[in-house]
Amino acid sequence: MSHLSLTMTAAALALTAGAATARDQIQIAGSSTVLPYATIVAESFGENTDFPTPVVESGGSSAGLKKFCEGVGENTIDIANASRLIKTSEIETCAKNGVTDIMYVRIGYDGIVFASEIDGNKFAFTPADWYKALAAKVVKDGKLVENTVADWHAVNADLPTQEIMAFVPGTKHGTREVFEVKVIEQGCEDSGAKAEMEKMGMDKKAVAKACTELRTDGKSVDIDGDYTETLARIGSNKNGIGVFGLSFYENNTDKLQVATMGGVVPSTESIASGEYPVSRPLQFYVKKAHIGVVPGLKEYVAFFVSDEVAGPDGPLAQYGLVSDPELAKTQAAVEDETTMATD
């Protein structure tokens, strides 16, 4: 009984919904890394224009892009925030559901930093240190053996004597991919381990796997939650070293000290110049079909990439975004509503 009446009520409500509401606010979902920037812009956009404040959801890049590709129409989102580039498979899903004209908007760059308890030892890392400390298996005497190193000093004599305890982003985070590629894999190559593995006759796939696999004996801990969780872990374990976004670190400089990577201190300047090696672009994707249907969509996108907002002196840079030196190009692309090349 209850189900029948419930379905009827739902159906009746659905009808009134269809008749009563044409959506008038922009809906955005996706990456939790882009979220703070998106909320800052949404808030400012709502304040300074007559359009309603966009609704920004979190949930991760993949979840956002999945929602984005569900189709075109009022009950689908307009913009997907992403801390990684859209995959070919996702573009295909999009196309299958009728989402064809997608605009790509790069908003700037985000640095990934390595930080530890503020009163603890100072660290100057290289990617090779991280590979040697965290790889599941390392090359020893021409053989691949379990990694048993337990102390940073044993990894690199220049590092202080401190137990290895790393809090790295879990695999559901876009940050993990960047960490693997730009730190661990790079370290594998820099330390000469990759060359040795190839010499040992391992095939390409096996080398790639051995180069990115992290140890699971408790020295490297995957954090599936947010940076706040990583921060809490470091608070309770003074030996911990965490992987953070630059903006998160900049908001918590009273609790964290940052390590250099390859001798470079991470900052918006060193990331913009490309000196600091671990960074990635942040972007969002817009459905062109929704421009002109959802009020304020194009204005929001243009506002986001305007110099006052995303430029080096804007509020986003203040929060920790590394502004894009090619912002003018993005602005022009938004103006022309240029979509991604479909091939």
Binding site: S2, L6, A10, A11, L13, A14, A17, G18, T21, R23, Q27, V55, E57, E70, E74, N75, I77
Partner: peptide
Amino acid sequence: AIFINFAGLPQSAPIVGGLVLTLMTL
């Protein structure tokens, strides 16, 4: 699945939240 994807109700709206919680409270 039902209220948003099938019935086409808007996202983030109290109506959908209310309906879902109704199912839970019943």
